[in-house]
Computed example of a mutant assay.
Amino acid sequence: MSRSSLDGRVVVVTGAARGVGELLARRLAARGARLALVGLEPDELKNVAASLGGEAACWTADVTDRSAMAQVAADVLARFGRIDVAVANAGVATGGPFLDSDPDAFDRVIQVNLLGSISTARAFLPALVDSHGYYLQIASLAAITPAPLMAAYCASKSGVEAFAHSLRAEMGPKGVKVGVGYLSWTDTDMVRGADEDDALRDMRARLPWPTNRTYPLEPAVERLVAGIVRRSPHVYAQWWLRGMQPVRGYLPSVIGGALGQREMRRAAPALARAAGMRRGLVGRGGAADESARTSSPHAP
């Protein structure tokens, strides 16, 4: 795609009610794209779509529901006639020690982030084959380096990264480009929600620069937009993430060894104070997911 070639292109964004997904939709619309917004918060989605004008529409759906996502794909095709880009952005997070974790919240992170991305790909890739389109999977620094107290999120993001790399080889001969987007700690409801946990916040503050910073949302999203325009295989929302790739093979032994264990000992008092506290999904997006599942009799 050239800089102007988003004009008239149909882009699907999941998790579009807030955060990365919302701003990404706005920036893509500013480049001339027509947007199909998917998420769990109908009022927020409608507000975003309305603010983008007649070239945007929204669908309320749980990305882990294969039937619902297949229907969304059919509806988007009926509405717009084609699909050129799909961005698997929907995600949730929880934190804390694995043995103290809420099993339902832990499993839900895997369901939404990994299985939801797979459902998204299954729903939209056939249309992308027809358009020779582009599929962008949003991953994370958590896919590159493991971290204590983040087992569910790291596992899910490592999974979607591997899934997208596998898809790239399969879909290339069909004319579909597949990319992986990497973000470090970015100023969203999810990250702000994680920072409400004392142990997580303090441990993150002790990470080496530049991994200990929270980065502004706008520049990160602009990098994602540029990656979509270029149909890039790898998109780095913060400049330094590219440099993590050559050293990623060494990180599990470092973080799982002396460094990580030292930080866990430091975190022990804060973890002890929080013992018995329910650690559900973080941020307003996490609350929306829990609310949607509670209110739906068919929730997974």
Score class of each variant (00 low, 15 high):
R266W: 14
A220R: 02
G260V: 13
N212G: 12
A199L: 03
L114Q: 03
G116F: 00
V160P: 00
A194L: 15
Y135K: 00
G116Y: 00
A90W: 04
A49G: 11
A275T: 10
V72T: 02
V112S: 08
G227T: 10
A152W: 13
G257D: 02
Q71S: 15
R293S: 11
A169W: 11
A61W: 03
D187F: 07
L125P: 00
L136R: 01
T145G: 10
D198W: 03
K174I: 00
M277T: 15
A142P: 06
I110C: 03
P210V: 10
V20K: 01
A268Y: 13
P297G: 11
L37R: 05
R204I: 09
G96I: 07
S158F: 15
A74P: 06
V282F: 13
D189G: 15
L128M: 09
R9I: 03
W59H: 13
L281H: 04
H132D: 02
P148Q: 07
W59C: 05
D189A: 14
V20P: 00
L99N: 11
G32V: 07
S156W: 01
S140N: 09
G256T: 08
T14Y: 03
G172S: 15
V221P: 07
H165S: 14
A205N: 11
R278A: 14
A36C: 14
A61S: 09
A194W: 06
D84V: 02
W59T: 02
E161A: 10
R223C: 05
L37T: 09
D187M: 02
T64C: 13
D130V: 09
F124M: 07
V191K: 12
T211D: 06
T188A: 09
S67D: 15
P103V: 10
V180S: 04
D197C: 04
R242F: 13
R265P: 05
P297D: 12
L52Q: 09
A147F: 06
P173I: 06
M203N: 05
A73M: 11
D62L: 04
R273Q: 13
G19Q: 01
I83T: 10
D100E: 15
V12K: 04
R66D: 07
G15A: 12
P173S: 07
R284H: 11
A56Q: 01
G19I: 05
E290C: 01
T211G: 05
P300H: 09
V225S: 04
P173H: 04
G19C: 04
R26Y: 01
F98R: 05
A36F: 08
R273W: 05
G159N: 12
A155K: 12
G39S: 09
W240R: 08
A49M: 10
A147P: 02
L52K: 02
A17G: 10
L281D: 04
R204T: 08
V48N: 09
A162Q: 06
G175Y: 14
D65C: 10
V112C: 03
G256S: 10
D107H: 12
A93T: 12
A288I: 01
V129H: 13
Y153S: 09
R278M: 06
R273Y: 02
S156D: 05
L224T: 08
V180Y: 04
L217R: 03
L125N: 00
P103T: 05
A127C: 08
A162W: 01
N113V: 14
N89W: 08
R66L: 12
A50G: 15
T64L: 07
R9E: 11
G8H: 07
E196G: 08
D43I: 03
I118H: 00
I118V: 15
G175D: 11
P103M: 12
G260D: 12
L115N: 06
G19Y: 01
